[in-house]
Amino acid sequence: MNTDIPQRIAIDGELSIYTAAEWKRRLDEVIDQGGNVELDLEAVQELDTAGLQLLIMAKKALVARGRQLQLSHHSAAVVDVFRLCDMADFFADPILPQQNPS
């Protein structure tokens, strides 16, 4: 497997307590395959703390293996939660626009 090209997964719908177990299973499978991972978040309609914890777990699992997690195409729901929880720095996420509070 070419580790330079990340495995891309598009998350669709909810990334919440109701879907976290299924997404954890899917992410664990991808992480176990090796290489970097890109999560396309464009179609995420809802993100709660369970979903956020899942993203944190994926990042930590990949970093522990010397690999990277890239987030792309953030939906408005994802941007809102990342801003509310101040998570952009944790994910080293350059896609989120920096805004000064007015």
Score class of each variant (00 low, 15 high):
residue 91 F to R: 01
residue 40 D to N: 14
residue 74 H to P: 02
residue 41 L to Y: 00
residue 68 Q to F: 09
residue 10 A to M: 10
residue 71 L to W: 07
residue 7 Q to S: 13
residue 63 V to Y: 11
residue 45 Q to A: 13
residue 87 M to Y: 02
residue 72 S to Q: 10
residue 44 V to W: 06
residue 12 D to T: 14
residue 62 L to Q: 11
residue 50 A to Q: 04
residue 13 G to E: 01
residue 35 G to C: 09
residue 70 Q to V: 12
residue 96 L to V: 15
residue 95 I to A: 14
residue 62 L to T: 10
residue 3 T to I: 12
residue 95 I to V: 11
residue 60 K to M: 07
residue 57 M to I: 02
residue 102 S to T: 08
residue 33 Q to K: 14
residue 13 G to P: 04
residue 79 V to G: 08
residue 71 L to G: 07
residue 81 V to A: 09
residue 61 A to D: 13
residue 16 S to A: 12
residue 99 Q to T: 12
residue 60 K to F: 01
residue 62 L to W: 11
residue 28 D to T: 12
residue 15 L to Y: 08
residue 26 R to C: 07
residue 96 L to M: 15
residue 71 L to E: 07
residue 86 D to W: 00
residue 85 C to V: 14
residue 81 V to D: 01
residue 7 Q to D: 04
residue 23 W to E: 09
residue 42 E to V: 01
residue 32 D to F: 00
residue 31 I to C: 04
residue 8 R to T: 15
residue 50 A to K: 03
residue 98 Q to F: 07
residue 102 S to N: 11
residue 34 G to M: 04
residue 30 V to Q: 10
residue 38 E to T: 13
residue 26 R to V: 08
residue 52 L to R: 05
residue 90 F to C: 02
residue 102 S to M: 07
residue 21 A to V: 08
residue 54 L to I: 05
residue 16 S to V: 05
residue 87 M to L: 08
residue 82 F to D: 03
residue 5 I to L: 13
residue 8 R to L: 14
residue 98 Q to D: 05
residue 21 A to F: 02
residue 37 V to G: 02
